[in-house]
Design a protein around this nucleic acid. Structure first.
Length: 102
DNA sequence: GGGGTGACCCAGT
DNA sequence: TACTGGGCCACCC
């Protein structure tokens, strides 16, 4: 599997995250590990930094609920609009975390 | 082939 | 709660 194909897998998964829910970088990496056989939280972050603009990237947050560095305002604005559970400027991961079925 | 670099994660303080 | 150090992994010089 080429890096380009891995990017496509990441973007496709991010697109499946429902409004009002989120996934962490680590969760995405672990989820794709079965399909792609590789990948890490760090690399998922790198992929979204470079290629994430077309997808709902604001639904991807760090495992501690912190939103995307450098895009806090935009991310929080969109998350609030979707009704994502927030605690101050962080996502309430326990309530918002989403996993694909299967 | 070696080393630098992250939109990370976790445990300890 | 905030900061630190170590581990991590794939890409890219």
């Amino acid at each position: 599997m080429t890096p380009e194909e891995y990017v496509e897998e990441v973007l496709a998964l991010v697109e499946r995250i429902p409004a009002g829910r989120v996934m962490s970088y680590g969760a995405i990496a672990e989820c794709l590990r079965d399909r792609a056989g590789r990948g890490s939280a760090r690399y998922v972050g790198t992929v979204l930094a470079r290629y994430g603009s077309p997808v709902p990237w604001h639904r991807v947050v760090a495992s501690n609920g912190r939103v995307v560095p450098g895009h806090e305002r935009e991310a929080l604005r969109r998350l609030r609009a979707e009704g994502t559970p927030l605690r101050d400027d962080r996502v309430d991961i326990a309530r918002a975390m989403w996993w694909p079925e299967g």
